[in-house]
Design a protein around this nucleic acid. Sequence first.
DNA 1: TCCTCCCGCCAAGCA
DNA 2: TGCTTGGCGGGAGGA
Length: 813
Amino acid sequence: LKTPLKQASTSQLVLTERQPDCQPLTTPPKPKETPPADPWTPTSNLKMLISAASPEIRSREQRRQLSDSSSEVLQTKHCLQEHLLGDEYEKSQPSRKEKSLGLLCHKFLARYPDYPSPSQKSYICLDEVTEELHVERRRIYDIVNVLESLHMVSRLARNRYVWHGRHNLPQTLQALKKVGEENKYIQQIQMIKRREYEHEFDPDGERNEEMASSFGSSEQSEMSFVELPGVEFRAASVNGRKYKSLRVMSQKFVMLFLVSTPQIVSLEVAAKILIGEDQLEDLDKSKFKTKIRRLYDIANVLSSLKLIKKVHVTEERGRKPAFKWTGPEVLPNTQDIKLEATSTTCSPPISESITSKEQCSKALFPSKGKQNFTRHSSLIKLVKSIENDRRKIQSAPTSPVKISASTYLLIIFLLETSFSLFLSQMTAEEMQMKCALSSPEAVPKPEPSQQPALSQPLGVCPASHSSVSPVILPHPQSGVSYAIYLHPSQAHTVTTYSPGFMLQPLPCANVTGIKSNNSKILNIMTTEEGDTQRGQDEPTKSLAAEERPEMKSETSSQRCLKRSQALPESNLIKRRKSDEESLDTSLTFFPSGYLIPLTHCTHGNKAECSTKEKAGVCSLQHTAYSSPITGVIPMPASELKTVNIPAFHITPLNIMLSPNSIAAAPVLSNSCLNSSSTSSAPNPSSSALNFMLQHIGLIPAGVQVPANPPLQHVPVSSQSENISHSSGSTNVQEGKVIEFSFYSPINESNFVFSLQFLQPKEPQEPQAVTENFFRTPGGPNTEPALSANSDGTQRTSQGTLYIPQRKLEVSED
DNA sequence: TCCTCCCGCCAAGCA
DNA sequence: TGCTTGGCGGGAGGA
């Protein structure tokens, strides 16, 4: 007798007995002949009846009658089975592994050639397959759905599919990569990781909900199946199930690999992203588990196709299952376009196709009234949030600008999103192409002060990026809000326009350690002497000179710098007006590179500095620290100067002052210039600097970066010295801009961003959502209280902004 | 214990 | 209405 636990397998035996040609070793004669002594439960009886009633079973019965010979064989096997003891019989049963979907998929794929002759279409009859592979129909659907997602098969009719093999695979992967980039899966992955940390440190925090709400949106959850021209999609059900179907999920899963660097995706992250597109708010365990199950199903098929391979990623929280992309390398976009142009399905002339990337994309993915290129829901929601924030800004122009938590988190997220991922996937050709796309011929060029092109496809840089909306970071303790705006980068780094803010990296070529493989990129990014100065001196002039990538005399960096300075108030106002119509968003990444502690520029660096002066940035030799995203090395402030991380690059970080702002900016003082001590009481400016750097995760928690000397070529010493004496208060002057530049070894580029101080006329309390981050229970001047967590990190109870992997400590009174 | 994923219920919707 | 399709989750085998 079998144990109750085995009853299920007994019923399974019954089922297989009813399907003799499905299990060669388990063929029974008739169900009625089953020994009545078997401990069948009512459930197993019911299952048997259901199975017997199944048309599939019936048809098999009929087929069996037509096949006496095979039946005899099966009878023989059954006799053998009957003579086996229970244990022996169980052993004779195929093991779980032998029944795995992966193995089944191998068998399935073995039936068809990888590259079938186009002249001879091979058809797949599900009945035949199920019969020959001795498997349930349901399992074949799993396989076929995944294959369909890769356009290796397509549904022809009921029970009938066409086998395409791998002919379409490169094209499909390129398409998926493109859509993955469109949907900004990189950001989502980063968002998920950030959220994980958030959850780790703040399991029931409101931030999670805010983050979740900013991430998921049910209203925009659908992302249609990515189709290829010529490979018609005929899903049996074209209803809502379609969007949850395994094939769509499979495509998204593949997209994650294609946009990731390295191409390793953990199941957990993938599942969360897939759920996120439905409703992250409703993320519960069962849903998550279901998603994981499906991902395993998909992964098994993809593994059989040798597109992915199971790996494990070890993180702080343990070992996680993940998969690594082992499929063909997907060509960059530039080559995509060429390929598309030469393909039979999307074949405009190459010259035309390059200048009409969007059209080609549209042709590649006919929308059919649906959103085939659906911007990810999180972005839509974020944009709305940003819109709300922006409206608040408009309604209270003189008050300190506040941002909602979602916007704020987005800012942080963007700031630390690894720009390297973005850059690393972008070839020089692509950049050139994108710049070319921004030419007037390719993109209608609006007036710089007019409505930006909001519907530009990814990578195409609208001319309107010239003006920059700063990111406002409230700082209630000082009553000063910080406005961070990054220099608008060159065309290729610009994606779309942000109504609320814009973060744009500025790659510069004046860095040490640039590797040759990025020489092409750097050629584009060459910065010429005095760019910064010019840009800052002549903000309005630069506006007129912007957006002319075809002008070889003006480098991209120049343009970036110039554009960054082009912030006339009228422009902002006009743009804000135009923002009303916009639901698009700009998500240009700020690099999460390595942070360099600031020490003053020694004579040993002077030569280098002088060299770098030509580029407008002084490069200093400093130890670099990992960013939170790229890896965290907790480091107490006391070790700042002695930290030794051999693996990290020596990286320059510079602070530059806008000549316009130097006179009043209290940030850099000679006292700081002459002392790199981190223990000295920070003046407001260095506090602000530290606050911001910690805030955006560029320095480890607790680390205080001393304000560094400004560039030697910047004639600020006397001025800043004067300022330093009066810098004991928080009375930073409004509108003053400090520029930072640092080198990211990942990106192999320098990045410059600016910190602008905004002096509110009437200091106000942070808004409710912001309070979660900024409110200090003891009042704005309360000293942050630190407490140690079990993991050794410090959590602050007040006056501190605590974000995973970093403590954003507001040390300024 | 957790990971992995088989298994089959059952609903949607096509023919 | 029968049948196909496939979402979904229980729960068992395996590590």
